[in-house]
Nucleic acid binder design. Sequence first.
DNA 1: CGCTATTTTGAAAGGGCTCAAGAGTAGTGG
DNA 2: CCACTACTCTTGAGCCCTTTCAAAATAGCG
Lengths: 251, 251
Amino acid sequence: MFLTSYANAHQIAKATPFQEAECLHALFTKQPVEHFMPGQPLFFEGDEAKHVFEVMEGTLRIFRIISDGRRVITGFLYAGDIVGVSLKERYLYSAEAIAPAKIRRLTRKAFDCAVAESDELRPKVFSKVCDEMAAAQDQMVLLSCKSAEERLCTFLHKHLQRTTTEGGRAAVIELPMTRQDMADYLGLTIETVSRSITKLIGKGVVSVANPAARHLIKVEKPGALAQLAGDGDEYQEARRDLAVQGDRRRH
Amino acid sequence: MFLTSYANAHQIAKATPFQEAECLHALFTKQPVEHFMPGQPLFFEGDEAKHVFEVMEGTLRIFRIISDGRRVITGFLYAGDIVGVSLKERYLYSAEAIAPAKIRRLTRKAFDCAVAESDELRPKVFSKVCDEMAAAQDQMVLLSCKSAEERLCTFLHKHLQRTTTEGGRAAVIELPMTRQDMADYLGLTIETVSRSITKLIGKGVVSVANPAARHLIKVEKPGALAQLAGDGDEYQEARRDLAVQGDRRRH
DNA sequence: CGCTATTTTGAAAGGGCTCAAGAGTAGTGG
DNA sequence: CCACTACTCTTGAGCCCTTTCAAAATAGCG
C-alpha cells in the first residue's frame, strides 16, 4: 500500500503534468474513496502521521483532548480541504467526521514526493499552510478577547461567507456540527452558545426556519451579524494610527 | 537593494552549498546587521511582506491591534528565530522590538528563491512552519480553557525550558517583556497577571530574587510549576482512552 | 530628588460557568 | 399508533473568576 501509493503519485506527476499543475486535488483523484460516518475517527493525536487526506464531501472536526478530559476543537474541515499538510512525524490533533464524509488519502511520502518534484504544486501547498496559519491567528484573537456573542457572530459570519459569495439578502447557513462542537471550538460552554443564539434570535439577526432543524440558521440581517462579529472594517487605519502613536507601551 | 540582496542570496547558495545546508541562518550571514530599540517596529500588519528577518539578539513581539484598540500578542521571538516565513503578500501582524535587538533581513524574493533551489533548505523551512503551527495550536488550547494561573504557569514553564535544557534545580528566567505584554499574550488583564504572580510567590513556586528586577523570576519549584501549567504528562494515554470510548459525542 | 511609567493591591461589578431541570426530537419496539 | 428511551438543546438560578475602576507602591531616569 505504501509503495503503491507512492508509485501512483509518481505516475500522476509524470503522466499528467498539466492536470497536476491545476491543483493539489488532482493528486488524490486516483485514490480510492473512503466513507466515514459521524463520529468515526480518521486518526488520533500522537499517531504517526502516515497520510494526508482530502475531504471530498462532509465535514470533519480537528481537536485535542486535554488533561482534564475537556476537548478543544481547533478547526473544522469542509469539502475541498486537505488535512495533515503542516505536520512533522506525528499528528498534533485528532480528526473525526461530523457529517457523513467521503475521503481520499495519500501517504505522506507520496504527497511530499509529488510536491517536492513540482514547481507548480509547492506554492499551492505553501499557500494552504499560510491560510492555516492565518486561521489560527484569527482564532487566537477570537479566544483572546471576544465576548460570547462576538465569538458566535464571528463563527456564523464565516459560515455565511463560505456558503454565499454574493452579497445577497437573507441566507440560510447549515451547521453540520452540534452545539457542543461549536462550544468546544469557540472556547465557551454549550449553555452559553445556546443562550447567545437565543439572544441573536431575539434581536432578529438570525432565525431558525424550521424548529425541527436547528442546524439550519437563517441570517436575517447579515450586516448586523458582521457588525456584532467585532472585526470592524475600519481597523486597518485605526491599527496604523495606534501603531504610529504607539510608543504608548514602550518601556 | 532588492536585486542586490537577491544576487547575494544566490551567491551564497552557489558558493557555500555546505554551509547553506547547515541551516537557514547561513542565508543571512552576508546581510548587514540592523539595530532596533525597544518599541521600534520592524513592520506593520497589512504592509506588503517584502522581507524575512532573522533575530540575532534581543526579543520581538508579534501582535495585532483589534477594532476596539486592544492589542493581542500572538507570539514572542527570540535570538535564532526567523520572522515572516509563513506569509503570502502581506504581513498578518505587526512586529516590534521589546529588548534591544540585532536583526538581519533578506528580501522575500531572495529568501524564497534560495529555499526553492535548495533541497536541504526546504525541509528546514517546512519544519519552522510546522513549529509555528504547533505553537499556535498550543496557544489556542491555552486561551480556550486554561485559568489565569495555568496560563501564567504555562508561560513561565515554557521560558524555563528555553533557558535551561538540563533538568536542574531552581533556575532564574528572564522575562524581557512587560506585564502588559504578558497579559496581551495570555488573554488576561495586567492586574490578573500581577495577582497571579503574587499568588505563585505566596505558594513558594517562584520568587523575585531582587525586588528591583521584577523581570528576573526565580523558579523555586519547577515541578510544581509544570503541574500548575495543567498539561499533564499522562494525557497522551488519557486522550487515547477518551478517543476510543469516544462515540460519547456522536450524533 | 522629583517626575513618569510600571507594577501591585483593593473593592465592586459582570460575564460566563456550574448545576439542575425542562423541552423538543428522533428512534425503537410493543 | 403510541409509549419509552436516548439525545440534543434550551432555560433558570446562583456562584466564581476575571475584569473594571481606583489608588497606592515601586522602579527607572533625568
